[in-house]
């Protein structure tokens, strides 16, 4: 019982801060002390969050579902032993699965802890947000009802995702989870329990998952909002005036803006005056695969080294393939 007192104190402090924050903030707003750039930052931050929450909640609910209803045996049965086949299958499943890049991280984490091999999970993560009906339609419309960009985005994105996942399968073994998150050993799933009970457990797991991922989502959204408020994209446009640098600039833009894959086509289209089609394509393929907000969420699950390697692989594979294809697009 010795540690009971400090724990109790902690709670007092916690409640204290909880009440302090709103007071502090209301005082400031009443006197209009907040500079307008901070107000802008806050508005964009909230807007990214409100936009992402539906997808994150869907993500944590699916993660909860996987945790309760899917067993290791299922996974063993479904995923091909052959690495290439596994990657191909996971990319195809991802392509059929409508997800957003922020909602997919908790799902991927749950899949890996259920025994899905890393390369398959990564393949799923890369194609999930990139290829789905909503993204196809919005890209089609954003580019003046033209199928070319939308088609290239899907086909190239799919091929690139396969290449990256294969590279991951060659370079990495195990779950690559950061310490503290362990691989699920075995779970004798509570099959005997009634469905209602299981459903209830699923919701409880979803809540825990939300509290695990929530903080990373918030930090990511905040950083993205910060960049949008204080970094001018104008200077970027001035750098990107030849083939290779324009691709890099658009990829950097996709990374720091952290747009939702359902909405990024319109932004991409608005740059089509400044940059050639292949750079826009790099923007459209790179953004949904990995971005600033998403990186922070990945860092909440995977080892730092692995996330950096993944980022490096995604960047270089997309950059090289777009550069090679730039003559033909």
């Amino acid at each position: 019982m010795g540690n009971y007192v400090p724990k109790y104190l902690m709670n007092i402090w916690f409640i204290f801060i909880l009440f302090l924050i709103p007071l502090f903030l209301t005082n400031y707003t009443n006197t209009f002390m907040i500079p307008s750039s901070l107000m802008n930052l806050n508005t964009i931050f909230l807007s990214i969050l409100i936009e992402a929450l539906p997808f994150v909640l869907i993500g944590v609910l699916i993660a909860g579902f996987i945790q309760i209803f899917i067993t290791e045996e299922h996974i063993q049965k479904w995923i091909p032993k052959n690495k290439f086949m596994a990657v191909l299958m996971s990319c195809a499943v991802g392509a059929l699965f409508p997800a957003c890049e922020c909602g997919i991280v908790p799902i991927v984490r749950r899949l890996i802890s259920k025994g899905v091999p890393l390369h398959a999970a990564i393949g799923f993560m890369l194609t999930g947000p990139l290829i789905n009906p909503i993204v196809i339609v919005s890209t089609y419309m954003a580019f003046g009802n033209d199928m070319k960009i939308a088609g290239l985005r899907m086909v190239l994105g799919f091929l690139i995702a396969i290449i990256i996942s294969l590279l991951v399968s060659l370079l990495f073994q195990g779950s690559q989870f950061k310490s503290g998150i362990h691989h699920e050993k075995s779970l004798e799933n509570a099959k005997k329990q009634p469905f209602i009970k299981q459903f209830f457990n699923m919701l409880k797991h979803s809540i825990d998952e939300f509290f695990d991922m929530g903080k990373y989502l918030i930090i990511g959204a905040f950083l993205a909002a910060f960049v949008q408020t204080y970094v001018s994209t104008k200077t970027l446009f001035e750098i990107g005036n030849d083939v290779s640098s324009s691709i890099l600039v658009m990829m950097l833009l996709a990374y720091i803006l952290s747009l939702c894959s359902e909405a990024d086509a319109f932004i991409g289209a608005s740059f089509s005056a400044i940059f050639p089609d292949f750079s826009i394509l790099a923007f459209l393929i790179f953004g949904p695969m990995i971005d600033l907000k998403n990186t922070i969420m990945l860092l909440g699950v995977f080892r730092f080294k692995f996330v950096m390697w993944l980022l490096f692989l995604v960047v270089s594979v997309i950059y090289i393939s777009i550069l090679i294809l730039s003559k033909y697009i």
Partner: peptide, 22 residues
Amino acid sequence: LILIIPLATGFFIPAKTLDASI
């Protein structure tokens, strides 16, 4: 605390219409 930040700003700081600086 991180989870509370957006709650606090969402409740107490009014959203602002984007302006010329953005």
